[in-house]
Design a protein around this nucleic acid. Structure first.
Lengths: 111, 111
DNA sequence: CACAGTACCTTGCGATGCAAGGTAGGTCCA
DNA sequence: TGGACCTACCTTGCATCGCAAGGTACTGTG
């Protein structure tokens, strides 16, 4: 069986990325660092970069290069209209899904 | 990108199965049918049977055959001690994970 | 000009959801 | 008796995706 946390990330990680660039444009390394600070989501470069590529490919993220104050240029990501729609859709699905799991496994919080 | 619901299931499905046999022994087809009634978790035989085999293999589920009132015999599943421990562990992890996602994607329910 | 730091990306593997396909025992009814 | 149908089990093969490990390239420093 795979690591518990790893499996849980599946399916949510990409939307956490979308949410992360929703209000501010961010670049790869910055995103990796921020996820690293979340024990529940900690994901390395090997996860994040391919993910960012996928999100660009399906048209949920857009990117543009920008100079760095020091070091190589950075690729900054931003939500597209489709990306925003997908994120909204996820928010609805997530709440529903979360409630179902809470009910079935009984976290002790349900009524 | 895969189906949203499909990805979300990953990692939680197996614990929903454990929870389903926590208090009552159940057999494969019954479990499939019950999941079919949950729009968020709908999983077919092709998902459930291999999953049940894995759970047996790692020692979280135990099973014994029993006659059916009509039709072929059924394999009834029950939680092992290890299975119960794993389920408890999941409950803790899940609550923590769920809160992190709620906070990051902002479901509009957070404080 | 070597070295360390930052930033990007790719390769290969393992785990797992799932459609589709396969086996076998039981019931029903002509 | 025997064919159609149901129930119940399980396997095969494919696609997806997280991730460790490895790789390229630019920049500033001593």
């Amino acid at each position: 069986m795979a690591e518990l946390a790893t499996s849980l990330r599946r399916g949510t990680l990409e939307f956490c990325v979308l949410a992360m660039v929703e209000h501010e444009h961010r670049y790869g390394t910055e995103i990796v660092r921020r996820f690293g600070e979340e024990p529940n989501l900690a994901a390395s470069e090997g996860t994040i970069y391919p993910l960012l590529s996928r999100l660009r490919r399906v048209g949920w993220l857009d990117s543009k290069w920008a100079e760095s104050p020091a070091g190589p240029p950075r690729r900054y990501y931003a939500l597209t209209t489709d990306g925003r729609t997908a994120l909204e859709h996820f928010r609805t699905e997530w709440v529903s899904f979360r409630q179902t799991v809470d009910r079935l496994v009984g976290t002790g919080e349900a009524a």
